[in-house]
Nucleic acid binder design. Structure first.
Lengths: 259, 259
DNA sequence: ATGGGCGGTTCCGAAAAATGGAACAACGGT
DNA sequence: ACCGTTGTTCCATTTTTCGGAACCGCCCAT
């Protein structure tokens, strides 16, 4: 394994849960000799990938990562339109909404609209979730052929809860339903008490799709409102597909400047 | 130069302006042979640092960077308190405000409160700016001894406008004023039409400070309001210093979860 | 105070990867 | 079809990495 790819592996060890790591932790997570990890982490610190935590042996991602992360835009025209669309639906119902994309077998939140109700679902921006156990993820997986979905899940599924698909057969059945109906829905799957509805929009490349997703506290939403939310999301997605090139008043997390 | 540090250099070539780069561009920016860069960029793509742009030769930062960037927290208790404090001042005056930190001779925005007025300054989150030519930057530089400030600026200053410090002597004079008065102020420096006021708060380590910064359209603010904003920021900073350990209702860009 | 235990670093020869110049291939424009 | 541009591959040389083991230093329990 080359240094660069090992460095990538190291960075993947960090997450919202694991905000800092020590030499030993990394060595165990990656099954590497400590001597290697010791040198590697120092080299990564010197290159700016990591920074040392003051008064501690731990390392955390460096500010370079923070910078790069905040100028990340993927197919920005599509994401911008999706973000605007989700914003309209979010405002209409008062629930949080977001745009996410798929990366392998995971989904990652790209942008977020906070809901206006007191009880609201928080931001998934930058968070990685198994795609199969999320409405957003299934809306995106459904755009792939079954064979590809199988390829992305070599190991048996590890469902985070009883309402998530329990095995590949159930996943494929639910993806088939998504293809038929045009939306995906999840209840109490990856996050307890949270429901979500998602509709995918096609990117310029296959596998480059994005999805509009509405998330809501289950306690606040009945079947009627759910139907209305589904209809609203589907309408927005149809609009995006109908006018693929439509200009959008460049927003979606526009970063301007300050001093 | 080792692969890892070259990779770091490559990533530093990206910015809000330069969202994508090709082999030739990187080779020229870093004065490296194309053969090297070609292999390096591919290796970085395979390791997840970069991704290739569809239908293009260009590369851009990978989604891994996006993820890491969004879980970046530096001395999170301090930043959280600073963010909350800036939020109060921002709401009070209707102008945008943010928290930023110093990295070498630059400042980088960490969190942001959007102003409530129609004309408002946009987010600097993840943006890097020369510290000497920004209120936020000078508020942080002022906490260093002159000698250290000199060391951070080996080359002559490159002032982005006439109101920024034009040379080291002027910079040091203005830093001295910041130390005396407790705040820094900038007018039309790095961003035309924008004024800003900043007050630093001390971190646990020297050089680990953060700053509260209010930014406003110059056309909207007169001397009286400026004084009131300065007073409000100073009061918030005093409060933070007075009770260093005070618990804060963990917010400041808290990321929760969704599906 | 003393001795472990634990986390981290350093050392070393063997093995693998990076380097950079030049030749080569792919592409876009005309 | 041609040219200029851009990116990739090749190769011998130089540099770095690898991983086991020995080593250091800190904290804690006795």
């Amino acid at each position: 394994m080359t240094t660069l790819s090992t460095a990538g592996q190291v960075l993947r060890c960090f997450s919202a849960r694991r905000q800092e790591l020590t030499v030993t932790e990394v060595a165990e997570l990656l099954s590497l000799p400590k001597s290697n990890v010791s040198r590697l982490l120092r080299a990564m610190r010197e290159a700016g990938f990591l920074e040392g935590i003051p008064d501690s042996r731990g390392y955390r991602p460096g500010i370079l990562m923070f910078e790069l992360g905040h100028s990340y835009r993927r197919d920005s025209a599509l994401v911008a339109r999706a973000h605007a669309a989700v914003g309209r639906v979010s405002r209409q119902f008062g629930h949080s909404g977001y745009v996410s994309i798929r990366d392998g077998a995971d989904v990652i939140g790209l942008t977020f609209h906070e809901g206006s109700r007191m009880l609201r679902v928080g931001t998934p921006v930058g968070q990685r979730l198994p795609a199969f156990a999320a409405a957003s993820g299934r809306s995106l997986l459904a755009r792939l052929p079954d064979e590809e979905v199988r390829r992305l899940h070599p190991a048996p599924l590890a469902p985070p809860s009883g309402t998530a698909p329990q095995d590949m057969a159930e996943l494929l059945a639910r993806l088939e339903a998504v293809r038929r109906e045009g939306f995906a829905i999840a209840t109490d799957e990856s996050n307890p008490g949270v429901g979500s509805i998602a509709v995918a929009v096609a990117g310029r490349q296959p596998g480059e799709d994005a999805c509009l997703c509405l998330v809501y506290p289950l306690s606040l939403v009945d079947a009627t409102e759910r139907e209305r939310m589904i209809a609203a999301l589907l309408a927005e997605a149809r609009e995006i597909h109908a006018r693929p090139g439509a200009a959008v008043p460049e927003r979606a997390g526009l970063r301007s400047a300050a001093a």
